[in-house]
Amino acid sequence: WKITIYDQENFQGKRMEFTSSCPNVSERSFDNVRSLKVESGAWIGYEHTSFCGQQFILERGEYPRWDAWSGSNAYHIERLMSFRPICSA
């Protein structure tokens, strides 16, 4: 599993790669995730830290803005603060 997060939209700004769970992006000096690329595996992104709040399934691909992973939710969530890989047995 591999995911790359960015602190600006369209894959700009600070970037960081992960191959395992991140319970709080702010502990990695990110205020928020504004864009991301899922390089391999599937991940679950969460609205809040500690894997809480609205969940987003993140499959392999590029997500240049928050609405790319938020989709058409009843209330739009511009925040992604934690994530972890989906492990299959």
Rank of each mutant, 00 (worst) to 15 (best):
W1D: 13
W1G: 14
K2H: 05
K2M: 08
K2D: 00
I3W: 02
T4E: 09
T4I: 14
T4A: 07
T4N: 07
I5P: 00
I5N: 01
Y6K: 00
D7A: 10
D7Y: 02
D7H: 04
Q8E: 09
Q8V: 03
Q8Y: 04
Q8M: 07
Q8A: 08
E9D: 06
E9V: 07
E9G: 03
E9C: 04
E9I: 08
E9R: 04
N10F: 12
N10W: 07
N10V: 02
N10M: 07
F11C: 04
F11H: 01
F11N: 02
F11R: 00
F11Y: 12
Q12D: 05
Q12Y: 07
Q12H: 11
G13W: 01
G13P: 01
G13H: 02
G13L: 00
K14T: 11
K14C: 06
R15V: 10
R15G: 11
R15I: 08
R15E: 14
M16W: 06
M16D: 06
M16C: 11
E17Q: 12
E17V: 10
E17L: 07
F18H: 04
F18A: 04
F18M: 07
T19D: 05
T19C: 08
T19E: 06
T19K: 09
S20V: 09
S20M: 08
S20I: 06
S20A: 12
S21W: 04
S21I: 05
S21M: 10
C22Y: 03
C22Q: 04
C22L: 05
C22F: 04
C22E: 07
P23N: 07
P23W: 07
P23A: 11
N24R: 04
N24Q: 03
V25K: 03
V25L: 08
V25R: 04
S26H: 12
S26Q: 10
S26M: 10
E27N: 08
R28P: 05
S29P: 03
S29D: 11
S29E: 11
S29T: 07
S29A: 10
F30K: 01
F30Q: 00
F30Y: 06
D31W: 05
N32T: 12
N32I: 13
V33N: 00
V33K: 02
V33T: 04
V33F: 03
V33D: 02
R34C: 06
R34K: 09
R34G: 07
S35K: 03
S35G: 00
S35T: 01
S35Y: 01
L36A: 15
L36V: 09
K37C: 06
K37F: 05
V38A: 03
V38W: 00
V38Q: 02
E39K: 13
E39I: 12
E39G: 08
E39P: 03
E39W: 09
S40P: 04
G41M: 02
G41N: 04
G41P: 03
A42V: 15
A42F: 07
A42K: 15
A42Y: 08
W43K: 01
W43F: 05
I44L: 13
I44V: 11
I44Y: 15
G45S: 02
Y46Q: 00
Y46L: 02
E47S: 13
E47N: 06
E47C: 04
H48F: 11
H48E: 15
T49F: 05
T49D: 11
T49S: 12
T49W: 04
S50F: 09
S50Y: 07
S50G: 14
S50D: 14
C52L: 14
C52E: 15
C52N: 15
C52T: 15
C52K: 15
G53A: 01
G53S: 01
Q54R: 15
Q54S: 12
Q55E: 12
Q55P: 11
F56T: 14
F56S: 12
F56M: 07
I57L: 13
I57Q: 09
I57S: 07
L58F: 10
L58I: 08
L58Q: 00
L58A: 00
L58Y: 04
E59S: 14
E59N: 12
R60I: 12
R60K: 12
R60D: 08
R60T: 14
R60A: 11
R60P: 14
G61I: 03
G61C: 03
G61D: 02
G61P: 04
E62Y: 08
E62L: 10
Y63N: 04
Y63E: 00
Y63S: 02
Y63R: 00
P64F: 03
R65T: 15
R65C: 13
R65K: 11
R65H: 14
R65V: 07
R65A: 11
W66D: 05
W66R: 12
W66F: 15
D67T: 15
A68C: 13
A68G: 09
A68D: 11
A68T: 11
A68N: 15
A68K: 07
W69G: 07
W69K: 07
W69A: 07
W69T: 08
W69H: 06
S70Y: 06
S70T: 14
S70Q: 10
S70V: 14
G71L: 11
G71D: 13
G71R: 14
G71K: 14
G71H: 11
S72A: 13
S72Y: 09
S72E: 15
S72H: 11
S72R: 13
N73P: 11
N73M: 13
N73D: 14
N73A: 12
A74T: 14
A74M: 13
Y75G: 15
Y75K: 15
Y75N: 15
H76P: 11
H76S: 12
H76K: 14
H76R: 14
I77A: 13
I77L: 13
I77R: 13
E78C: 12
E78R: 15
E78V: 13
E78H: 15
R79W: 05
R79C: 10
L80I: 15
L80M: 09
L80F: 08
L80W: 01
M81H: 05
M81V: 06
S82K: 02
S82I: 01
S82R: 01
F83D: 03
F83L: 04
F83V: 03
R84P: 00
R84N: 04
R84I: 05
P85T: 11
P85K: 05
I86A: 12
I86H: 15
C87R: 12
S88Q: 12
S88D: 13
S88C: 08
S88P: 14
S88M: 10
S88Y: 10
S88E: 12
A89K: 10
A89D: 09
